[in-house]
Amino acid sequence: MNETCQAVARRVALKDVAANRRRGGDIRVVLGPKTAGATSGFLGVLTLAPGEYVSEHYHPYSEEFLYVTSGSMTVTVDGEPVEVAAEEGVLVPVKARHRVVNNSDAPATAVFHLSPLAPEPRLGHVDTEELPHPDAPHPEIDAPHPEIAAR
């Protein structure tokens, strides 16, 4: 083993991570700075019931990789809908506004990864649409878009 390596592998169970429901759906950061000590990005799971959505937002510093594991989702990126079925993925570029919707009659689940991290957690997401559950508990700090905060 490399003696200069200080990294520690950390296992985190989905069931042990609190859901963030502020933007809609069930969003859980499984491997991130707070849950696993990650330093370059984070990975999580998004679950949407039929008709549920994640409100529009963008990431000023990060690309988002979204891979649908079951069901299907419509990911609207800068106004263009992208249909993503199970075993398909979509890359959302840095600063691209995006919204995720489950338009089907079955639950849908996706794994997501964002990288690199923003300089501060509150700078990682910029909301561009009213949040469906603004008072719901959330594990990360949110930075609402000035247009939304002014309402």
Rank of each mutant, 00 (worst) to 15 (best):
S72N: 10
F65K: 04
N2G: 12
P33R: 09
R23H: 01
E3T: 14
L123N: 04
A38N: 04
T109D: 10
C5W: 15
E3M: 11
V92A: 09
A118F: 11
A18N: 10
R28P: 10
V84H: 09
D105Y: 09
A38M: 06
A108D: 03
I27P: 06
R28K: 08
A18D: 15
I141T: 12
E130M: 13
A96K: 08
L43R: 13
R10H: 11
N2R: 06
T69V: 06
H138I: 03
A38V: 04
V82L: 13
A36Q: 00
E140C: 01
A18P: 05
A118P: 05
D142I: 05
P116A: 07
G124V: 09
A110V: 04
L43W: 12
D26F: 07
G71P: 06
G71A: 02
S72R: 05
N103T: 13
L31P: 10
V77M: 02
C5K: 14
H59T: 10
K15Y: 12
E129N: 04
M1D: 09
P146M: 07
V17E: 04
M73Y: 10
D127H: 02
M73R: 09
G124P: 01
P107M: 00
V77D: 06
C5S: 07
A149L: 14
N20K: 11
A85M: 06
E88F: 14
L46Y: 07
V126G: 12
P81M: 06
V126F: 01
E56C: 14
N102F: 11
K15C: 15
V77C: 03
R122F: 04
T69F: 02
E63R: 03
P134Y: 07
